[in-house]
């Protein structure tokens, strides 16, 4: 393994440590060597409901719907994704600003849709 590669893997592992408290099975590194975070959408919550990212570090969010179509919207991080029913949507994000943000499901999914959201912390 080259130095560069092991460095990236180490970074990914560090990142995932903060996430793995909440999700199991998130320690995956994609072929492009970008850390991957799995998020599940199911009426009317995201799981995990909080993730922590590092400013300037690119990650891949793998968004999976377990039931109907959901959305994943957060203007400050330029996220505006659709997660079709039962499918997975992948999006790569490089947060540029630190802060605590609320990502919402913006695809109407039923009774408690209005409060379907999760927190993204950018450190």
């Amino acid at each position: 393994m080259s130095r560069t590669k092991s460095f990236i893997v180490a970074t990914a592992t560090t990142l995932c440590l903060s996430v793995s408290l909440l999700v199991s099975g998130t320690r995956r590194v994609h072929a492009e060597n970008v850390p991957v975070i799995d998020i599940t959408a199911k009426r009317f919550a995201f799981s995990p409901d909080k993730i922590t990212l590092k400013k300037g570090q690119t990650v891949k969010l793998r968004l999976h719907s377990e039931d109907v179509t959901h959305g994943f919207f957060l203007r400050p991080l330029k996220l505006d994704e659709e997660i079709p029913a039962g499918q997975t949507t992948e999006v790569t994000v490089t947060p540029e600003t630190a802060g605590t943000f609320t990502t919402i499901c913006d695809h109407f999914c039923g009774a408690n849709h209005g409060n379907m959201n999760m927190t993204i912390v950018v450190e």
């Binding site: 919207f73 203007r75 505006d80 609320t102 919402i104 913006d106 209005g114 959201n117």
Partner: peptide, 12 residues
Amino acid sequence: FDLRPDWEWFTS
């Protein structure tokens, strides 16, 4: 307009 986006009080 973005009145309160995290409450979905906006139009994208």
